[in-house]
Nucleic acid binder design. Structure first.
Lengths: 177, 177
DNA sequence: CAGCGCCAGCTAACACAATTAGCTTTGAGT
DNA sequence: ACTCAAAGCTAATTGTGTTAGCTGGCGCTG
């Protein structure tokens, strides 16, 4: 049922995700949803956790057997592809605070983080800089993907090309450390 | 009145910005707001336009008289500072599509863009790469600032330090072109 | 100065989303 | 066959956005 909510969010956008619409899509009356979910907030946290887990899996799978520039490019592309394919569920992840360390939300985020950390292993990043580099990669990927999925890049140049350029930029910067 | 809406959004968060609360803060009944604004959507677009204009001014002012690394650092810091100081109104800017080329939203975005373009003038970026570099800078700044304002950086390392590191990274990458 | 019309407020009312309470059905396990 | 819990339903409440239609004040014009 959280899965149905995630699919609906992808279809109609996160703000369009409504209890009534979800119930309708499930062929059920609205109050029945509360037998499965505590409320809208709970649903959103569930969707966010699902998105994080799926995205983490996709990125983790993409870098399997790769290292260095290959791994970075694969991870970035997989991340962007996921956000573009599932804009609604990804949007649910921003602004969610895990309730505790074993919250599915926290473990999903942690796995994603570990994946990017392993990408950095392919570069000579000093230990003290790893956290900063991680945040940089996250800001880049998150910023690009969310701007693109919100139609934030309106002017001319080709967006795919920009993304490849961006991967290249990050790779050169990391190799130069 | 749009200004009051923006201030309220900063106080209570964008989702907390409600017609009723805004009316209350203005000492007026809710329906009276519709004499000044067409509705919630219109209000949000107004807030977004205001935020874009203010942010553009702040960044433009920050780089005055600077060039190269100085300009880049000043622009990035001003941008981040604005988003942190005004999280609500900045959040209103994402996902807004300008209705036309003379929409205040579009001109605000354009001015911001030009400012960053002038920052790039301080580097030897080939003409063909300027758009890509612009998108990279926007993704970096937007991604970092939004993640930070949504409390997306939970783990240890110091966030200010990460941001300075990120400026440095971008500077080195741009100088190496 | 009287009258006119507009601006900005108000009340009443409606639509729709989230949520809760309490009843009913159904199906699995004893 | 009996029990009970899961999952559905209807009815009702609250909160938010929005529209319709009325009203009081204030500047203008005759």
């Amino acid at each position: 049922m959280v899965a149905a909510g995630a699919a609906l969010a992808d279809d109609v956008g996160l703000p369009g995700l409504t209890m009534g619409l979800l119930a309708q899509r499930l062929g059920v009356r609205t109050p029945s949803l509360y037998k499965h979910v505590e409320g809208m907030d709970d649903l959103l946290r569930g969707v966010a956790a699902l998105a994080l887990a799926e995205a983490g899996d996709a990125v983790g799978l993409a870098i399997r057997g790769r290292a260095g520039r290959d791994a970075l490019a694969a991870a970035a592309r997989a991340f962007r592809a996921f956000v573009l394919a599932h804009p609604g569920r990804y949007a649910a992840t921003v602004g969610q605070e895990p309730t505790g360390p074993d919250d599915p939300l926290a473990v999903g985020a942690g796995r994603m983080l570990d994946t990017f950390r392993s990408v950095l292993h392919g570069y000579d990043v000093p230990e003290a800089d790893v956290d900063h580099a991680l945040r940089m990669l996250r800001s880049l990927c998150h910023g690009f993907a969310t701007l693109e999925s919100a139609d934030g890049f309106r002017w001319s140049a080709d967006v795919d090309e920009s993304f490849e350029w961006l991967i290249d930029f990050a790779d050169r910067g990391l190799r130069a450390m």
